[in-house]
Design a protein around this nucleic acid. Sequence first.
RNA 1: GCGCCUGUAGCUCAGCUGGAUAGAGCAACGGACUUCUAAUCCGUAGGUCGCAGGUUCGAAUCCUGCCAGGCGUACCA
Length: 556
Amino acid sequence: MMKHTIKRIVLDAAQKAFENGALVSEQIPEMEIEEPRHQAHGDFSTNFAMVSAAVQKMAPRKIAEILVSLIETGSLIEKVEIAGPGFINFFLSNKAWYPVIDQIFEQDKRYGASDIGKNEKVQVEFVSANPTGPLHVGHGRGAAVGDSVGNILCFAGFDVQKEYYINDSGRQIRTLGTSVWVRLLQKSGKEVEFPEDCYKGDYIIDLASEIHEKEGDKFIQKDEDEAIAYCAKFAAKKILKGIKEDLSDFGITFDQWFSEQSLYDAGRVQKAIDDFKTKDLIYKEDGALWFRAQDFGDEKNRVVVRNNGLTTYFASDIAYHMEKYERGFDRVIDVWGADHHGYIKRIDASVVASGRKSEQFEVILVQLVNLLRGGKPFQMSKRAGDFVTLKNIVDEVGKDAARFMFLSRSYDSGLDFDLELAKQKNSDNPVYYVQYVHARITGILLKAKQENIIQDIDFNKGKNIHLLNAVEEINLIKILNAFKENVEKSAQTLHPHVIFTYLMSLASAFHSYYNKHKVITDDQEQTLARLSLVLGVKKVIRNALTLLGVTAPERM
RNA sequence: GCGCCUGUAGCUCAGCUGGAUAGAGCAACGGACUUCUAAUCCGUAGGUCGCAGGUUCGAAUCCUGCCAGGCGUACCA
């Protein structure tokens, strides 16, 4: 919001300059107010003079001089300088920053929230793993990203719904049933070879044991199809329950669990195909029905109904995405693993074909997780069945460390996740660095309460803010002020690691301040000012951690 | 072959809707605990931003072409 004020000042000065004839054109080209990297360049800087050079037919530095002469310095702006090729640098007075603290106290849990979303209805769909096995590390990263993106969009003023799509229909469920059934037969003492294309994990054997305990050997006599159907239903239900528990332990809840089967039951898949047929977007070839995806930018046309009469996964996905927009979402965001990237264009094609804009469909492609233990790679092969589950990870390193690690860098890059490192309770592990700030501040506030300096460790109004004059204090306030911009940037780019980076810089500034200045001193008035500042820091740390789904502990 | 992602300090990565001297953590080296939690801080050292062109007053950032790595390229899900 500070940026806004500066922009206003620049625009006013430009207008004045035009009115008194110093500038020849009233045109204002696209200009930036930015925060310079170096302190020597002030708190804010604008490239106005440079971008205006062409329009004004004047040297940038000359334009800068005209503007600077019209900008009043005084209470808020300490000084204005011209630098380099024509940057105008603004140096703010300490006083200009104090309102930030008041805002934190006033807005508390809403501090940093934005309204850029304008209540737009957005759906974020993530994880959506097949209920054929437990969630693994890759799902964990997708879950952390999807959940945080949802939180951040919500905080930025979007109307967000989080959804999990359950692929409870189709061949993989039948394969699951077969897998369990074969294990069940083996359990009953039958010599049956385990099929190559079945799920090999130990959890299949566990499921078979459960059925065996409940039902005994009764399935050996039963009709194969009937038995497999029973096993499939039993296993899928059980596995889905496990998935829900694992996600819940990971701090994730969904607004809706959407069943693929329900699309078939409601006739929506057929309806989608019929709809495309009437638009002449479907044709028959080699006994199969094809969607003209190529007409909408895909590399080739895609099958929706196979020559055996069965619909493809793509067919139900078309119906599913149509359904999303019919539910009223303006924007649909899917979080997928990078190995599905070839699928984007085809869904996009179907979305456009059904009358929506391409911009209304976005995919967050999360690159793969490379699991390590003490620097050595871990094998994760679903085929062999010896993969590391999300539950393993959460049990071993904890929810907070896992989530923070998953969000520590952009999902555009592959992630090395070292279990040994995530487990360490020291500075190698960034989650402690940040949580420690929250705990440390709580410690200070508790001490202040004990000494009767404050009534309660949480209070709702800053005191003696004007006494905050140390460089480190002003610096901290500046970072606190930047929280909202970071939320907005994170929401606009759909990148939660922006919040991670922000947290690290705030934590660093706080630890630095803590080591240099004592909060509680003999100077009562100053102590109150500093307590207000650190409580402000505490609130912002909490707000930011909440967006990432990480807890803010009172003590560690 | 084609498509998506990546290539920045010894390692892991920020910075990428163009801005002024490219940042952080780890590792290395040297310091700071009688103090509100040393799970911390301060300092030193470390870089042809994969390579080559182009656009621009200005390029790690945008465009083109190479090179390297990961992933994908089904009438599977």
